[in-house]
């Protein structure tokens, strides 16, 4: 079984399958994260209590380890496929993209943007060093402090939209890779819901709906 997993990974389809599976794991995390964020609308105490509860039940570190593994695998496979594509594809003097959606064409750079954002996001709201408030455990206050600034809102918006595009193609692509095809509309729908959920927080703060 081990030998065969290695053989599978050696094939280009195997790498794509790894990206699909790790992508699916990351996507599930993103959805859970997005739903958790909505606690901000229940008031300062609710959000901070939700944070404490996550620590108390002991899921934080296992999830972090899992996420890190998924991100590494996702990235390595993507890197290998990209390097391979660079060698294989031809360079035309005159090239026009026929159909591939914007989302499909921006998977690689979109992925890089999301990765950079995640680093900033961790320094901002997990470690707290880039946060204007930066008090450990005071999640609600930190969040509210963040989104007073238009440039922070802008940064989060750009990142969330990049994530939306990534999800839009990624969801469809992962199902295709795992051999079950769905309509591309499913990917679009999921992406819109995730984006709306995430963006509701900064815009609610920025407009004063949450304070």
């Amino acid at each position: 079984m081990v030998v065969d997993t290695i053989r599978l990974y050696r094939s280009t389809i195997g790498k794509k399958a790894v990206m699909a599976v790790t992508g699916a794991a990351l996507f599930l995390y993103v959805v859970a994260h997005m739903i958790g964020n909505l606690a901000v609308f229940a008031g300062p105490d609710a959000l901070d209590a939700y944070g404490r509860w996550l620590r108390d039940i002991g899921v934080v570190w296992p999830v972090r380890v899992g996420l890190l593994a998924a991100v590494v695998l996702h990235f390595v496979a993507a890197y290998q496929l990209t390097a391979r594509a660079r060698r294989a594809r031809g360079r035309y003097r005159h090239r026009r993209v026929v159909q591939g959606s914007y989302a499909a064409r921006t998977m690689r750079w979109g992925g890089v943007i999301i990765a950079l954002f995640v680093v900033y996001h961790l320094l901002d709201l997990t470690v707290g060093v880039l946060n204007p408030n930066g008090v450990p455990g005071a999640i609600h206050a930190n969040v509210v402090a963040d989104f007073q600034h238009w440039y922070v809102v802008l940064a989060y918006t750009v990142a969330v939209l990049a994530l939306g595009f990534h999800i839009r193609h990624g969801v469809w692509s992962a199902t295709q890779t795992l051999g079950v095809t769905t309509s591309r509309v499913v990917g679009l729908g999921v992406a819109v819901v995730v984006c709306a959920g995430f963006l509701s927080v900064p815009f609610a703060v920025f407009t004063g709906l949450v304070s």
């Binding site: 280009t12 391979r84 060698r87 594809r89 591939g100 499909a104 692509s173 890779t177």
Partner: peptide, 8 residues
Amino acid sequence: GGCTNAGE
């Protein structure tokens, strides 16, 4: 190259 479901 490997297929990445670009759809072209």
